[in-house]
Simulated assay, not measured.
Amino acid sequence: MDRIPITKEGYEKVKAELERLKKVERREVIKAIEEARGHGDLSENAEYDAAKERQGMIEARIAELESKMARFEVIDTSKLKGDKVVFGATVKIENLDTGEIKTYKIVGPDESDISKGYISIISPIARALVGKKVGDDVTVIAPNGEVEYEILEISFD
């Protein structure tokens, strides 16, 4: 069974989602099913069908999260330090062709969010950055070709 790296913050978010699904969403859908049953003939009851479909989606998501949580390896990024890029590091890089500067935090696959600058450890750019130091040039193989970056800064929260 493969371990899935995740930050403490990411783990807490997944845990909160699982609790919400079990304690709130599951109860709400059960009530909706009971209410729809009260409307009579189930064979032509769209409310019942929708509630049963929603219940299936909730139960599938609960099973998925429980499976993932069993495989999570929680990494306390507050204790990380050093001069190399590792899981949990925040890295400032410059595109050597365009001069564009971006900052990314390397996180687990379940917490990546490019709008926040969080990239998955399994993404091509993170895989290229891991193990490198400030000043190193990195080549990332992207869908539209190779992109060259220079690492400007590495920090840890």
Rank of each mutant, 00 (worst) to 15 (best):
R3W: 04
I6S: 06
E9K: 02
Y11E: 03
E12Q: 07
V14L: 10
K15Q: 05
K15R: 13
E19T: 15
L21A: 12
E25D: 15
R27S: 10
E28S: 10
E28K: 07
V29L: 14
I30P: 04
K31M: 14
I33K: 01
I33C: 03
L42S: 08
N45R: 08
A46M: 10
A46D: 06
E47V: 01
A51Y: 01
K52D: 12
R54T: 14
Q55C: 14
G56E: 15
G56T: 15
E59H: 14
A60Q: 14
A60W: 09
R61Q: 13
A63F: 04
E66K: 07
E66A: 09
K68L: 08
K68Q: 08
K68I: 02
A70V: 05
A70Y: 06
F72A: 04
F72D: 07
E73L: 12
I75A: 00
D76G: 00
K79W: 00
D83S: 13
D83K: 13
V86C: 01
F87I: 01
F87W: 02
G88Q: 00
T90K: 11
E94G: 05
L96P: 14
D97N: 11
G99C: 13
G99P: 10
G99E: 13
E100W: 03
I101E: 12
K102V: 06
I106N: 01
I106M: 00
E111L: 00
I114S: 04
S120G: 01
S123A: 10
A126F: 06
A126W: 05
L129K: 03
V130E: 02
G131T: 08
D136F: 11
T139K: 13
E148L: 13
Y149I: 06
I154R: 09
S155P: 11
S155D: 13
